[in-house]
């Protein structure tokens, strides 16, 4: 079925249509959730949270064409709130692991991009991930994150600059 038809169906309250809308693009949604959460289980949780919010609010969506960016914005917000909850839960665990991680880092001569990415501020991190990992262009990122395009650009360029600094002489 045509996507617009599906959006209309979902707006009319069809759960099947809504699930199909997501499943038709499951890779994009799953990758987006995975980029934020980094874990399969959390990515699935975030998507389950997302679909409930979509279902409750889709009748408000006037422009069917906007379904993609609308739903992705909601998914990003679900991921973030899930991570906020997780943060409180895994705090202790993280503390214990630190020694081990440091040890590993000093042994590894190879640069671990994830470690460096984590040092960036959250805004820069997500802008870089969306651009480079999910291939979104600046305009799409600004739509999904609801920040002006100029901010997206400056986050990316500052983030890249910082990454370069962190990597020091090696890169």
């Amino acid at each position: 079925m045509d996507k617009i038809q599906l959006v209309k169906g979902a707006k009319a309250g069809s759960k099947e249509a809504l699930v199909q809308l997501i499943m038709d693009n499951k890779k994009e949604y799953y990758k987006l959730a995975y980029v934020y959460t980094g874990r399969q289980e959390d990515a699935l949780d975030a998507m389950a949270d997302m679909i409930v919010i979509l279902y409750e609010n889709i009748y408000k969506l006037k422009d069917e064409q906007a379904f993609d960016s609308w739903s992705k914005t909601i998914l990003v917000n679900c991921c973030k709130s899930l991570l906020r909850k997780r943060k409180k839960l895994i705090f202790l665990e993280k503390l214990e692991e630190k020694g081990y991680q440091e040890n590993l880092a000093s042994k590894e001569s190879k640069i671990d991009l994830d470690n460096y990415l984590q040092k960036l501020n959250p805004g820069q991190q997500e802008a870089i991930k969306l651009k480079y990992f999910l291939d979104m262009d600046n305009a799409t990122i600004s739509q999904v994150l609801k920040v002006p395009i100029g901010t997206v650009k400056s986050r990316i360029s500052l983030g890249l600059k910082k990454l370069k600094e962190y990597m020091g002489g090696e890169y």
Partner: peptide
């Protein structure tokens, strides 16, 4: 390096339970 990460992600398998999870949530 970023691109390398992206390629990794590109090959991410989507869990088969995804659809069931979505249906269950609804």
């Amino acid at each position: 390096l970023l691109k390398e990460k992206k390629e990794e992600l590109e090959k991410l398998e989507i869990p088969i339970e995804l659809e069931t999870r979505l249906n269950k949530a609804l």
